[in-house]
Every structure is written in C-alpha cells, then in structure tokens.
C-alpha cells in the first residue's frame, strides 16, 4: 500500500499551503480588528493549531467516503480489503498534516512568533485518540459512501457548519457559558482545544473532559468496525455497487 504515496507527490506542498492560506486569511481579518493575540496566543499560531486538525478531520472523512470506489481496481487481489484503503488513506493524511503542522509551527517559531510548548506526550495522546475517532468515522463513511451515492453531496454540507463551531477561529474561553453547554458536545472542538492546551503553556479551556473524548473516540471506532464487519462482503460483491 505504500505506493499510494505516489499519488500525492504534488499534494505534499499543498498540505502546507492550504492551512497557511487559511491562517493568512484569518490573520488579515483579525489584524483589521487590531488585536494581536487570542487567549494568550499570537493569532497565526492559534489559527494554525485550529485549522490543521480540522482540515485533517474533513479530509479523512471525504476521502473515506470514496475509498472503496476509488480503489476498486485493487480489490482484484483477494488480500486487499476496503478497510486497508481506509487505513492507508488515514495514515497518509495524518502523516502529511503532522509533518505540515510541525513544519509550519517551527517556521513561525524561527521567524519570531513566540510560543512555549507545554506537553508533547499529551499532544501525541490526543492525536492518538483523534486517530481512532477518525478511523471509526472513516469506516462508517467507507460503508455509507458506496451504498448511498448521495452522501458525497451531503457530507460537505454537514462538515461546513462544523467548521464554524469547532473552535477553529475562536477560543472556547471567549464563548459565553450558555453556549458552551451545547458546544462542548462537539468532539472536534474537544480535539482542537485539547491540542492547544497540550501544545501551548498558559492556554486554557473552560471544560476538560478527556473521558468524554475517549468515550466518543472508542464508540466511534466500535460503531465503525461494527458497520464495516456488517457490510464488508457487500462492498466487495459485484452488483451491489458497480451497477449503480
């Protein structure tokens, strides 16, 4: 499955350019309002730490959706199962965005944007949970994608608003309490805020429930595996998918 990297030769640079573009756009808007930092972080760093996990999340979801149909030719080999494709794409996305994240943060650091790292092990722990969460959702998507073609249209519609409520461009500490009650159900928000807490010293978030995040991650994985086990044969059987 390693050869799948070949596809992304051009995509590599985009992995860095894309979040940078978002960061740039937000920074300009934010600068127009005059404030220079958000919740104790300078804003490029803040946006960067929000947009990368979010892009990663939406990317894996959309990729998983098409993973079965896109890799159809590989199922000619009996050892290749759909979950391999989901896993491969997921690993690839994580690797790309991880490298991109580290790269962008270190570039900012060398150019004098100050921040202090808090806990690397904590960060990796959160990333691991995030990985499981994405894997679960990815498996679900891989099952849904080929069985309901419309999902390719619906998913972007669902992901778009998630962008607004996942704390990409605002810290939860600035959100009034009465909204927090609802916002904190959003696992993506959890991931992003947790990442910031673990990455940066002095960053704070009003709720900290690693238990909730773990629960969501593992249940997503559980449901994902269940759905996949249930429909694996159907994904491979000709006539269910190809005739559409």
């Amino acid at each position: 499955m390693k050869s799948r990297f070949g596809r992304y030769k051009l995509g590599y640079s985009w992995a860095i350019l894309e979040p940078l573009g978002y960061v740039g756009a937000f920074s300009i808007i934010r600068m127009a309002f005059g404030s220079s930092d958000i919740a104790g972080l300078s804003f490029p760093i803040f946006f960067c730490s929000g947009i990368i996990p979010f892009l990663l999340f939406s990317g894996t979801l959309m990729q998983s959706l098409t993973s079965v149909s896109a890799n159809h030719s590989l199922f000619t080999y009996r050892h290749v199962k759909p979950y391999h494709c989901v896993l491969a794409r997921l690993c690839l996305e994580f690797a790309i965005y991880f490298v991109a994240g580290v790269f962008i943060l270190s570039v900012f650091y060398t150019f004098g944007v100050q921040f202090a790292l808090s806990s690397i092990s904590g960060t990796l722990g959160i990333l691991a949970l995030f990985f499981l969460f994405c894997l679960g959702l990815g498996l679900i998507m891989a099952v849904i994608g080929p069985l309901f073609r419309e999902s390719e249209k619906i998913m972007p519609i669902l992901i778009r608003p998630l962008f607004l409520i996942s704390g990409v461009f605002f810290p939860t500490i600035e959100v009034p309490d009465r909204y927090i009650v609802y916002l904190q159900w959003n696992p993506v928000l959890h991931v992003i805020e947790f990442l910031r807490v673990n990455l940066f010293l002095n960053y704070e978030m009003p709720f900290q429930s690693i238990a909730y995040l773990s629960l969501v991650s593992f249940s997503s994985l559980f449901v994902g595996i269940l759905a996949y086990r249930w429909k694996e044969k159907k994904l491979l059987t000709s006539g269910t998918i190809r005739l559409r």
Partner: peptide, 12 residues
C-alpha cells in the same frame, strides 16, 4: 486473481 481486460492496475 482473475486476469482480465479491466482492473488490477492503478492508471497513473
């Protein structure tokens, strides 16, 4: 694997 006209290879 079934050797056929279609499938089995990645085009790019």
């Amino acid at each position: 694997w079934p050797l056929g006209i279609a499938g089995g290879f990645i085009g790019h």
